[in-house]
Design a protein around this nucleic acid. Structure first.
Length: 742
DNA sequence: GAGCACTGC
């Protein structure tokens, strides 16, 4: 596209003719030399008002960022390339500065376009947008804004620099596959390889060929740059150009153990106390894997540190220990930012703060003042087994990249030390270079539907940066086919398109779409929302009995899905009662999130003319809800085998047990479950009793008896079918439904 | 009679 000259002049409010600061700028051929006088000038070129005093002082600090010194190089590469890979370590200023640099050259406002910067996390999108609005001396939500789920802080027509979550950009692509509103797209933190970032990279690789006017910048930490350069290169000999900026962190000295450790928790506690006794002042960050482990370690560290303090008050100072994990209430999460305790006596040894954290402190949360990192080398990671369709969380060794990231947490304010509780040999030989990208570790039903909706027909040959296991794709296609989201040729059906408009798993979308037919969409909406948020039940270690009793009061014995509905309804009715959630051992955060999700789903229902309906008769209502559940989750059904309380999942024939948290008062012959998880054994969680005739009626293809192995389940279904033939039941309503989406 | 690492629409 030919570069254009910005408006020559403009009229100020006093009607005086002043020169546009961008006068003479050739769009996308702008040089660093041209920009500096505009940045340091008197008039903000984007809103034509005078720069504030704050702007100038912020600009002085921006000038000290490593990336600022390389402006010239950046503009040269930006002008001459459509795609750019940028590598910048922590503290380089890439997330705040690069999008601003782009805007000065791309001049999106002169073309009615937007520069987007996609982030993996909501908080980052929000806080960076706020910071950049300050740096550019404009109001947040005007020229600079952000878009995340449930919150759009942009002003259409005004906003030309937009921070957003990667998932949000992917959703937008579903309505606008060429992403026409954007002139430059920046993918930040690409090395994290979230599912959304990976899919976006695949899409954008083909979009840039169809849109020569679209520029793309992929920003990442050092390690994966070559992979991205190859992926976005024109061919195998042509790497995409790399723009590299050094970080601004302090050196971290790394120590290894001489021998492998047997019990990493115990050895971690010992190491923390060793640091406390023997090392210079400075806070400690210890990485462990889960809530229980962390709480336990905190207790032990506190006890031992108190002992040390009492034995040797002249040698060691006081110590405070804070746990950190995502399900911790925000108020308690905030405590990690408290200062280390003061010395017990005016001239006594200084105090020390210890934070014991999950992976959340590796990427999402930064704690300044950390000087020592203790890294046992493990984290919990999600694994998906497509053969039996089960996701599980298991403790696994971290990757080298992760270990490096963890070590870096010690050098944010001054030189630090990292104690790795494994041998150097193990680090070199046993740890993988990179953690597996998410796309290789999860169920892809949702993603496959999104890709189909985006018009990608050949999912197997889609240009993934790392291709998922074929079996995972097959499982996803199979599920979507059974849900009638795909036809026999694998094309998306009108029902499938409708399902894709819901930001949920396809099973939930299907359940929502059919719910008006069963006169229970009002209730199914609440259930879908509750199934989309984290666990609402709290169970503090020392109040388990009280928590279980509170839960029993809200339990509907017929099924956990109905219990969730009951909890949501009670929550809404009692919203005015202070402490209601707390008194009932429920998570206020998860419940308010559920309410947000419900509102969003409701809007999508309305937009698609799906009615909000309900009936008064509770028994009929519950049966309607269960049938809607069956329409979405007929593949997640188990049949009771024998009297020992064990169940067999339908078709996969996995032996499973009802999870102990299940609220059913009896063990029904047929149950539908939301989740199949492997922990100490195979469990099904969130379980509701159903009638088997609904399976035959609402999912006849899946319950075609020829596809079943011989056994109790098949016998039960056959007996049922024979009875149906005799009585001539079923059929009618189903035929009508199929016609609707044909 | 057990557990939910972390994101995201």
């Amino acid at each position: 596209m030919a570069p254009t000259t910005a408006n020559k002049e403009l009229r100020s409010s006093e009607n005086l003719v002043v020169k546009d600061p961008f006068f003479g700028f050739l769009r996308r051929k702008v040089t660093a030399k041209q920009i500096l006088p505009v940045m340091t000038g008197q008039v903000n070129p984007f809103n034509k008002t005078s720069f504030s005093a704050a702007y100038k002082s912020i600009l002085d600090s921006r000038k000290k960022l490593p990336v600022f010194g390389q402006k010239h190089e950046f503009y040269e590469m930006y002008s001459n390339n459509q795609v750019l890979i940028m590598v910048g370590e922590t503290g380089s200023g890439k997330t705040t500065q690069i999008p601003q640099f782009v805007v000065y050259s791309d001049l999106p406002h002169t073309k009615g376009k937007i520069v987007a910067c996609a982030q993996p996390r909501r908080v980052a999108a929000m806080s960076v947008a706020k910071r950049v609005a300050e740096e550019m001396d404009v109001s947040l939500g005007k020229e600079v804004g952000y878009t995340i789920r449930f919150e759009d802080m942009t002003d259409p027509g005004t906003t030309f620099l937009k921070y957003m979550t990667d998932g949000m950009l992917l959703r937008e692509a579903m309505n606008d596959p060429l992403l026409q509103r954007y002139s430059t797209i920046i993918l930040d933190e690409a090395h994290e390889r979230t599912l959304a970032t990976d899919i976006l990279m695949g899409l954008l690789k083909s979009v840039i060929k169809k849109r020569p006017d679209l520029k793309l910048i992929v920003m990442s930490a050092t390690l994966d740059a070559l992979k991205f350069q190859k992926y976005f290169g024109r061919d195998s000999d042509n790497l995409a150009p790399l723009f590299k900026v050094p970080g601004r962190t302090h050196p971290v000295e790394v120590f290894y153990t001489q021998e492998p450790e047997q019990d990493f928790v115990e050895s971690a506690i010992r190491t923390v106390l060793m640091i406390h006794r023997a090392e210079e002042p400075g806070d400690i960050l210890l990485f462990l894997t889960g809530e229980e482990q962390i709480e336990d370690a905190c207790r032990k560290i506190k006890l031992e540190a108190d002992d040390l303090l009492n034995q040797d008050p002249d040698l060691v100072g006081p110590l405070t220990c804070y746990p950190l994990y995502s399900s911790l209430p925000p108020q308690q999460q905030q405590r990690i930012f408290d200062k280390a305790p003061s010395p017990r006596t005016p001239n006594g040894p200084p105090g020390r703060k210890v934070v014991v954290s999950t992976n959340i402190a590796e990427t999402s949360l930064t704690i300044d003042g950390i000087v020592y990192v203790v890294d046992p080398g493990f984290s919990k990671q999600k694994v998906y087994n497509p053969r039996i369709r089960v996701e599980s969380l298991t403790e696994q060794p971290i990757s080298k990249a992760s270990a490096q990231q963890r070590a870096g947490r010690a050098g944010r304010t001054r030189p630090g030390k990292c104690f790795r509780l494994y041998t150097e040999e193990a680090f070199m030989k046993e740890l993988e270079e990179q953690s597996h990208p998410e796309i290789l570790r999860c169920n892809l039903a949702n993603t496959v539907l999104e890709l189909l909706q985006l018009g990608i027909k050949d999912l197997v040959h889609f240009d993934y940066i790392d291709a998922p296991a074929p079996e995972t794709l097959m499982r996803a296609l199979e599920l979507l086919h059974y849900l009638a989201a795909l036809d026999d040729e694998g094309h998306i059906t009108p029902l499938g398109s409708l399902m894709a408009s819901f930001p949920t798993d396809p099973q939930l979308a299907k359940m929502l779409i059919v719910s008006p037919e069963f006169k229970c969409s009002n209730e199914v909406l609440s259930i879908a929302a509750m199934l989309s948020v984290p666990n609402v039940w709290l169970r503090p270690p020392n109040q388990r009995r009280e928590a279980d009793a509170a839960k029993a009061l809200l339990t509907v014995p017929d099924g956990d899905h109905l219990t969730l509905l009951n909890v949501y309804n009670n929550y809404m009715q009692n919203a005015h009662i202070k402490n209601w959630t707390w008194d009932n051992y429920l998570s206020a955060r998860a419940l308010s999130q559920a309410d947000n999700v419900r509102t969003q789903l409701l809007r999508i229902m309305e937009r698609n003319d799906l009615d909000l309906v309900s009936i008064d008769d509770e028994k009929k209502l519950y049966n309607g809800i269960k049938q809607a559940l069956v329409c979405g989750f007929f593949m997640q059904v188990a049949h009771k085998e024998g009297e020992q309380g064990s169940y067999l999942t339908v078709k996969d024939n996995q032996v499973v047990a009802l999870h102990p948290s299940c609220g059913l008062d009896v063990q029904p012959e047929w149950v539908l479950f939301n989740e199949f998880a492997f922990t100490t054994r195979y469990y099904i969680r969130t379980v509701t009793s159903i009638k088997p005739q609904w399976l035959l009626e609402h999912a006849p293809t899946y319950y075609e008896l020829g596809s079943f192995q011989d056994g109790g389940m098949k016998r039960a279904l056959r007996a049922l079918e024979q009875r149906r033939v005799v009585s001539g039941g079923g059929g009618g309503r189903k035929a009508k439904k199929q016609k609707k989406f044909a």
